[in-house]
Write a protein that binds this DNA or RNA. Sequence first.
DNA 1: TACAATTGTTAGACATGTCTAACAATTATG
DNA 2: CATAATTGTTAGACATGTCTAACAATTGTA
Lengths: 165, 165
Amino acid sequence: MVKQEAQREQTASMEDYLEAIANLGEGRKVVRVKQISEMLGVKMPSVTSALKKLSEQELVEHERYGHIKLTPEGNKVARDVIRRHKALTRFFGQALGINEETAEEDACKIEHVISSLSMERLAKFVEFIEACPLGSANFSSRYEYYLEHGELPQDCSKRSVSKRK
Amino acid sequence: MVKQEAQREQTASMEDYLEAIANLGEGRKVVRVKQISEMLGVKMPSVTSALKKLSEQELVEHERYGHIKLTPEGNKVARDVIRRHKALTRFFGQALGINEETAEEDACKIEHVISSLSMERLAKFVEFIEACPLGSANFSSRYEYYLEHGELPQDCSKRSVSKRK
DNA sequence: TACAATTGTTAGACATGTCTAACAATTATG
DNA sequence: CATAATTGTTAGACATGTCTAACAATTGTA
């Protein structure tokens, strides 16, 4: 029994390659196998092999020893990965206050597995946090208090509940 | 060159097996290969094969045609996966308002890749949202307004900015 | 321009995790 | 309790994606 879905979806690996090529190619810069391999932490033969697969799917143009370039379709996929990546990085960085390096790492993993629905909501969430100074200020200051002290700030209850440690 | 790290980390697959065994074994219920295979959507030989690997690592006790049980170490790993799973489900469900099914799916994927730092923060975030009625009420009502209307509620700015579409 | 250094490719090994087909053990039932 | 149904295992194919080793092309430079 063979999967008969559209087969349009990429694996995490292939998405990584597309993303790397897009990022390296910003501003019409020439993209090299070596750069991709360094960016992704794999050896050059892995890149060559990935480029072959992506060429067959017409997501990448690549000729032996020659140029590497995303096709319009490949670019579309890459842009989408990058969009998810950025939103996730912002979420972990801004909203959760995670350090940049960890935020990046998590974004790199999660970008490949999160559903589009959750992705949209997360993006909206970040937009909201960043755009709504009052809501977010109240929110984040209380949240930070909670993070630091491990208990809720006093103004957190509707009634002035006496519950203190 | 061989990786020389502690080799303690499990793959997503192996974590899934451990998690399934823990869930199926709740309340001392007998765990069967068939159940695991159904729960994870794989065929039985895949389960047998996974059990073999997990036995070698002493995370699972399994004898041919016999009982399947987590070792204390295996249980520890499984509990940790389940903890992440639950926190993520709550985050997507409660905080982002995602439907249960999608929240589950995303949790199942992300639980295997998220860093412990982000995991802790996310859990705290959910705790906060759920525990701080005032902060969260203000926050979520504004957030929901934003989700529904696509623009910020009027009380969102510090100054009464005129910026309306 | 010839040679050296660098970059890229090919071939093939290997690890992981899945599957199907065939067989074996266990369990249920007439 | 004998046989059928179910459950589980083994063997081995296959897909993905990585690697090393060897070789080939390109580029830089004396």
